[in-house]
């Protein structure tokens, strides 16, 4: 283990480390803490300059319900769910198929196609922007939730394929070969043998894609102008314009937008980190 375990140091150093940890964490999360404190104080506190002290009254519930009452925050949240969940199902489902094809079959196009998925995954969004708007207009789904889902699902299929292909490649190939010798059909092998084995990968991808899509801002601004279809990230930005200088409401709305992915992360932490650090350990 590196660095040396703290237990091997003097008790003084151990104590210092134990004190340093919470202080470092406090400084690291200071902006978040401060915005949380702002979201629970009355507006008068901000005006009088009481920004970081104890709030003169705790208005947690008032402020947050004011956000819901004054704005369409609830609809924005529902829209985001309607965008994130179908995208998650579509892209992970498709990537199971493509990843399986690229990992298991040895054909000439396997590696070039795999690289195509990987490369497409890294291109800047701006180069896709105008043609994607064009496609959405042609399919008559511009300005709608399905329009956003279609693009996100297609784009995230690239990342998911990268992940799935590497995951399936690491499975023991003998399993598949022996199943083939038994005369099991190709799709049966995929469905009954491989799919149960890639469950951890599916879980990791679902959490990641959900978070990515939840936090997407660019595509929502590009593909959606209609207020009734906006997701929460764009919604919060719009609120920022409406609530000029009403920082207690802006901060409450921001934290509202941040909560679901944070919850997702804490519940599915293991899968989340496994997904993000893919490739960070193999030689």
């Amino acid at each position: 283990m590196f660095p040396k375990p703290i237990k091997s140091y003097s008790s003084k150093a151990q104590l210092a480390y134990k004190f340093a940890l919470p202080i470092a964490l406090f400084l690291w999360l200071l902006p978040l803490l401060a915005i949380f404190m702002t979201s629970i104080r009355p507006v008068s506190d901000i005006a009088t300059g009481n920004v970081f002290g104890v709030p003169s009254s705790f208005q947690l519930i008032q402020n947050y319900s004011e956000v819901f009452a004054k704005t369409d925050a609830l609809r924005y949240l529902i829209n985001t769910l309607l965008i994130a969940l179908p995208t998650m199902v579509l892209s992970v489902g498709l990537a199971c198929l493509t990843g399986y094809a690229l990992a298991v079959y040895k054909f000439r196009w396997a590696l070039p196609l795999f690289f195509l998925f990987v490369a497409g995954n890294f291109v800047p969004f701006q180069i896709l922007m105008l043609p994607v708007v064009g496609i959405s207009v042609k399919l008559e789904i511009i300005n709608t939730v399905p329009g956003l889902v279609m693009f996100h699902a297609a784009f995230q299929t690239g990342f998911c394929t990268l992940f799935m292909r590497n995951f399936i490649k690491a499975l023991p190939f003998e399993l598949i070969e022996s199943a083939r010798l038994e005369g099991v059909g190709e799709f049966q092998i995929f469905w009954h043998l491989v799919l149960p084995l890639v469950k951890p990968a599916i879980a990791a991808l679902c959490v990641l894609i959900f978070t990515f899509i939840w936090n997407d801002f660019f595509w929502a601004t590009v593909l959606i102008q209609e207020d009734s279809s906006l997701p929460i990230t764009v919604g919060v930005r719009t609120l920022n314009g409406e609530f000029v200088q009403q920082w207690h409401l802006i901060s409450a709305a921001s934290l509202l937008a941040a909560t679901p992915p944070v919850l997702m992360f804490f519940i599915m932490q293991k899968h989340f980190i496994a997904g993000l650090t893919l490739g960070a350990t193999k030689g």
């Binding site: 964490l25 690291w28 999360l29 902006p31 978040l32 915005i35 978070t211 939840w214 936090n215 801002f217 990230t233 764009v234 919060v236 930005r237 920022n240 802006i250 901060s251 921001s254 934290l255 937008a257 941040a258 992915p261 944070v262 997702m264 992360f265 804490f266 932490q269 980190i273």
Partner: peptide
């Protein structure tokens, strides 16, 4: 996991913060 926190939050929210 608390140190990892900022990554999970949307960039829009980080920007607003």
């Amino acid at each position: 996991s608390l140190f990892f926190f900022p990554f999970v939050i949307s960039q829009v929210v980080v920007g607003l913060i």
